[in-house]
Design a binder for these strands. Structure first.
Lengths: 222, 222
DNA sequence: ATGACCTGAGACCAAAGGGTGAACGATGAG
DNA sequence: CTCATCGTTCACCCTTTGGTCTCAGGTCAT
C-alpha cells in the first residue's frame, strides 16, 4: 500500500501535527527526509493523497490533515487512543453485540478503510430496520452543515441504491469512499458536501457506486 | 492543517470564549497577537473558517464560534471536547425498556414538559455511564452551531452540577427548561445558544438550576 | 549499450501568508 | 436620528510556500 518513503513522510507529518498542531511546510519535510529538493516531497504528498492517507487544501500553506495511518504505525508512535480498544471481550451470549465500526470516512478515504473493523458500537435496534448495517467514524468537516461533525459515528445501512438527496457512502472509481449527499443530475451523479469549502463533484454513473445509506448518527460527549 | 499564526489565534479565541463566554472583537484579537492592524486578523479568521475550525456570522459583532481545535491543543489544554470515539466494551444487557423521552426541549419550554413521558428510546448503554438518564427531543435551532438539529434526541444524565462549557438542561426560575451551553461568569450563570441569532442570557445563580448534562445525541434519518 | 522509468537536485514563478494604514459600511444602543 | 463600535475591504509591501519544469544520475529489462 505504501512505499517506505511514503510511510516515513506520513509518520513524520503525523508526528509534527500531533506535537505542534501545525502541519509542516514542504521545505520542512524536505529537511526531515534529508532531501535537498522538495519536488520529491511533492510527489510523495500527491501519492499519499491519492491513497487516502492525507487530505489537503491545494494551494494553501500547511494545509495537511492525516486521515489515517499505515497499518503498522509501528514506529514507536503511541497509539491514537482508539488503538487501546480491545474488541475481544464481547462474548455475552445476547444478540446485542453491536455493529462493527468499519473505519473512518471522509473525502479521500480508500475502500480498504471499509474492511478493517476498528471497534463496535452498540446500536439501539430501533434505529436499525431490516438489513445489514455498519458504522463509520466521521473524519473531517465536510458534512458540518448537515450537523455531522468530526468524530461522530454514523450508522449506515448497506444498500446499492439511494434517492437523490440521501446522504450516502459512495465509492468513487473503486478507490475512494466518501460520505456525501447524493444528487442525481440527469444521467450523472453529484456528490455534494455540506460545507461550502468543499466543491460538489460530478461523476458519470459508472464511476460511483453507492455502498450504503445514512440511517442514523450517534455522538457522544465526553 | 494550520499555520502557526492561525493556531495562535484559534487558541486565543477559544481561550477567551471559554473564560468569558464572549468572543473577542477584531481589535482585541489584534492586540492579543500584537498586531497594528486588524485586517490581518480578518484574513486569519477567513483562513480558519475555510479550514473548518471556526464559524461566524458575517457583519455580526463577536459572532465567532470555535468548531474544533487543532490536533495538538498543545497549550496545556488537552480537554479537546469530544475527542476520538472510543467504543467501550459492551457491558451486560441493556436495561430492556430503554430510557424515557420526557418531552421536547427548547427555549421556552415549561418544566411540565419534563414530567410526561412521550416515548422511549433504546439507548446503547455504552453511551450511558452510571447514573440516571433521560432523553429529550430537541425542538428548534438554537443549538445548530453545535451540530444539534431540530428533531434530534439528546441523552441527558441527571445531575445538578456542571462545568463551564458543558451543554446542560437548565431550569430557569422554576419555569422554563432549556438546552444551552453553560458558562460561569463570576457568580452569575450565562446560558448560551449555539446560534448567534439567539442571545446569551445571564442570570443570578439562584435563578438557574441545572437538571442534567448532555452525554450523547442520536439522530435518525428517515 | 540502449531506452524506459524512477528519483532527487536545483531553479523559477505564481500565489498564499501576513503586516500596515485608511476608508467604508453595517449594527445596535440611546 | 445619531453616534460609537465593530466588521469589511482595499492598496501596498515583503516573506513564505506550493507547484512546476528541466536536468542528472541511478536501476532494470531487453
Amino acid at each position: 500500500m505504501l512505499t517506505a518513503k511514503q510511510k516515513e513522510l506520513l509518520l513524520y507529518i503525523h508526528e509534527r501535527i500531533k506535537e505542534s498542531g501545525v502541519s509542516p511546510s514542504f521545505d520542512e519535510m524536505k529537511e526531515a527526509l534529508d532531501l535537498a529538493s522538495k519536488s520529491g516531497i511533492h510527489r510523495l504528498i500527491t501519492a499519499l493523497e491519492e491513497r487516502g492517507f492525507l487530505r489537503r487544501l491545494p494551494h494553501r500553506a500547511r494545509a495537511l490533515e492525516v486521515l489515517k495511518l499505515p497499518e503498522s504505525a509501528a514506529t514507536a508512535a503511541p497509539p491514537k487512543g482508539r488503538s487501546t480498544f480491545r474488541p475481544s471481550v464481547v462474548a455475552d451470549g445476547r444478540s446485542g453485540m453491536g455493529i462493527p465500526i468499519l473505519g473512518q470516512i471522509a473525502a479521500g478515504v480508500p475502500i480498504e478503510a471499509l474492511q478493517n473493523e476498528i471497534g463496535r458500537i452498540q446500536a439501539p435496534d430501533d434505529l436499525l430496520g431490516a438489513g445489514d448495517h455498519f458504522a463509520l467514524e466521521v473524519k473531517g468537516d465536510s458534512m458540518i452543515g448537515a450537523g455531522i461533525l468530526d468524530g461522530d459515528v454514523v450508522l449506515i445501512k448497506r444498500t446499492d441504491t439511494a434517492d437523490s438527496g440521501d446522504i450516502v457512502v459512495a465509492l468513487v472509481d473503486n478507490e475512494e469512499a466518501t460520505l456525501k449527499r447524493l444528487r442525481k443530475r440527469g444521467n450523472s451523479i453529484a456528490l455534494e458536501a455540506a460545507n461550502p469549502a468543499y466543491e460538489t463533484r460530478i461523476f458519470g454513473p459508472d464511476r460511483v457506486r453507492v455502498q450504503g445509506k445514512l440511517v442514523a448518527m450517534i455522538r457522544r460527549y465526553s
